[in-house]
Simulated scan of single mutants.
Amino acid sequence: MENFNFYSPTEFVFGKGMEAQCGKCVKKYGGTKVLIHYGSGSVVRSGLLDRVKKSLEEENIAYVELGGVQPNPRDTKIYEGIELCRKEKVDFILSVGGGSCIDSSKAIALGVPYDGDFWDFYGTGKPVEKALPIGTVLTIAAAGSEGSGASVVTKEEGMLKRDTGSDLLRPRFSVLNPELTCTLPAYQTACGATDIMAHVFERYFTNTKEVEITDRLCEGILLTMIKETPRVIADPDNYEARANIMWAGTVAHNDIVGVGRSQDWNSHAIEHELSGLYDCAHGAGLAVVMPSWMEFVYKHDVMRFAQMAVRVFGCQMNFAEPEVTAMEGIKAFRRFLHSIGMPINFEELGAKEEDIPVLVKKLGIKDKTWGFQPLSSADAGEILKIAAHAKVEE
């Protein structure tokens, strides 16, 4: 295990009806004027936005609103939010929605006190030195942004999807009420589940040795998702299954399962170009990319993939030919994704094989990536070719 620092200061307020605590939480963390940032009209139709406003009003906290966040959140809405916050002298941002809304809120939070273009921080490694505090009311279990310092947004010019990260962007608090996810369509629920599993796999496939504790934590989350996702698809109102998935989404990405070990993130980088170009759901893109990445790299450490196959998917270990076990695990993962309604190839996703050179070029790999197995541009192209023709195998 490698040396590490782990910092996760977010306060999680979990359970039924806990959105009523928003006003108290904002006050606790010093907010006096709030930007309520949200996505579509679902938070309005459900009455959630009104409940959040009421909680702020009960604590005499002023607020302004900015709705309209899209999936794969756009820079145009972020610029609008930055301007509004400066004009209204907002000192706290409250995101009411899923990962896209939270990521947009984080971009606004770092952009308000910055003299330049907020985009300077995305895809560049430029350190964030100052940001407004944010809180979240989560409505989708998926991205884990409610407990992480990461933000992924899209620049409309060129449809570039890029990320940044800083502990300054970790929410001060996050309200997690599993009831708020019960009305999600099955497809959106499955996309979220896929994203959660991908966040774990990006950490699980590591070159660091002797990381048994975080291996077991990773495997526990993956087993939970395999159990609970079909349950909520069959019964959307299953609160206990929703609760397990919601908390899994948070611990999958606040890095508790990633400390002390090298990580990968190449599947996410490749997928960002898919959802950037086609505006598909991030989880759906990951369902196509991640098993294909696994097929391409598994020989780099066959025994780690065999371990995943045995511990997570219940495959039998073939000690004479561990490669067979490793591939059985990859096939089982793809079968699971297909069983919950996820696409597993380009045709099902709505992508085009002829666009692979464009996708690879947008990745911008200069030499090789870092990660579990560093990838060249040619490697990324081969992974996308596997993804284009992937199929479910027994």
Score class of each variant (00 low, 15 high):
N318F: 10
L384Q: 11
S40F: 10
K368T: 15
N60D: 08
A190M: 07
T139C: 14
C280L: 02
V90N: 08
R311E: 15
M317V: 07
C85G: 14
L274D: 04
P185R: 02
K352W: 04
C315S: 13
I365Q: 02
P343V: 05
A281F: 10
F92E: 08
E57M: 10
E354C: 12
G81A: 13
P178L: 13
T136G: 11
M327W: 00
H282N: 05
S376K: 00
E146Y: 12
K391V: 13
K106F: 10
T164W: 01
F12P: 02
V360T: 03
L286M: 14
S100I: 10
L110P: 04
G144A: 12
L277H: 12
C218E: 08
M303F: 08
F346V: 11
A241S: 15
A332F: 01
K366E: 14
M197D: 11
D264W: 09
N345E: 11
L217E: 12
G165P: 00
T76R: 10
T181M: 15
E88I: 08
E271N: 12
I245G: 06
E228R: 04
D117A: 09
R334L: 06
P9F: 00
V302L: 05
M317D: 08
E394C: 07
S275T: 11
A387M: 09
L66I: 01
D91G: 12
G220K: 02
K87G: 08
C101M: 10
D279G: 03
L184M: 15
D167Y: 04
E323Q: 14
E382P: 00
T208W: 05
K53H: 06
A248M: 03
T154V: 02
P185D: 12
L286I: 02
V13I: 15
T325V: 09
T136P: 01
G350E: 05
A248R: 00
G111A: 14
T76Y: 12
E353A: 15
G135I: 02
V34F: 04
T181I: 06
R304D: 08
I36M: 11
L138I: 14
S166N: 04
I82Y: 11
R311A: 14
S46L: 05
T181D: 11
P230D: 07
G111P: 09
S46H: 04
I196C: 09
E382C: 01
E57V: 09
A380K: 00
L184Y: 07
V259P: 01
E65F: 03
F12A: 03
F118S: 08
L160S: 07
A150K: 03
S145W: 10
I365F: 07
D355I: 06
S40L: 09
A243Y: 06
A193P: 01
E323I: 01
G276K: 01
L169Y: 06
G23I: 09
D91E: 14
A306H: 03
S8G: 07
I356H: 04
A326N: 05
I82P: 13
T32G: 13
S148K: 04
M1V: 14
V211N: 02
R170T: 13
A281Y: 05
G220S: 13
W370G: 09
P171N: 11
V90M: 04
G123N: 05
G39M: 07
S148E: 13
V257R: 01
H282T: 03
G47Y: 06
C25Y: 04
W370E: 12
G158M: 05
T224D: 14
T124N: 10
E19G: 06
P133N: 01
